[in-house]
Amino acid sequence: MALEYERRETFWHNLDPRTKLIWGFLIILQLAIWTDPLWQLVTLVIILIPGIIAKTPWRKVLKFLKPLLPVMLLLLLAEAILYPAERLNIPQATRPLFTIGGVKATLGGFLFGLNLVEKILFTIIFTSILTYTVPFTDVLYIMQRLGLPYQVAFIMSTAWRLIPYFRTIYNEVVCAQKARGLELEKYGLIGRIKHSIAVLVPLYSTALDMTERMALAMESRAFGASKKPTILREFKFSRKDYVILVICIILMALSLAITVIGYGRL
């Protein structure tokens, strides 16, 4: 997502990762059952409060969202025009909002589009806060407790760690070939694919060579010596966690109740 994990001393960072995942479930629940864009603003508040406590670098999040805005606008417009507003059970759903080239946009369609846009944007924001406050390995440890085999967890964490490494190697290979006069920009699509060999071959051979040496290094650290290696990470709920958990559970129940009563949906 937009953010990488950063180790910080904030109230939210210090919570147990499981608590933060429960918070995530609360948000997913609300985003899933509510379709009313106004009610979704409540979700936004529940997203933002921990985000602010965790001192989220909002600028980076905004930078990530910015290129999405035109797409969102297009989505909003399309829904406003195309969505069958008569299906919605709100007053004035079919009231025309504006017309473009003879095509009518409805209020209902607009609201539904707004709801979709909010769902997408809020999902990005809350997952960014999650990735910023929960280290990836903790997620793996939790999944391991839930039955994910150690080998799978290890492969995932190693792959995760190697992403930046391979990005560096890729950049280096591109530079090395540029220094030999390679100009991919010069070619059309076909030429570009053809000339990419100069980058792909060294990249793959380096990666292959690396896997072998890495396997050797793993063996040298007794990887696979035991079926059940020690899991070092210990999770412990503190009083703070219980408070947040209770709040989350109450909010979940409340959201469901509100929906059953008949609010929150278009």
Binding site: T137, F154, R213, S220, R221, A222, S226, P229, L232
Partner: peptide, 23 residues
Amino acid sequence: IQMFGLSVFECIAFGPANLSLSK
């Protein structure tokens, strides 16, 4: 190629953890 873990601590603990030693 010989660091397995997302923190220095995890990298160093990797070997002993593979041996299933106590925490």
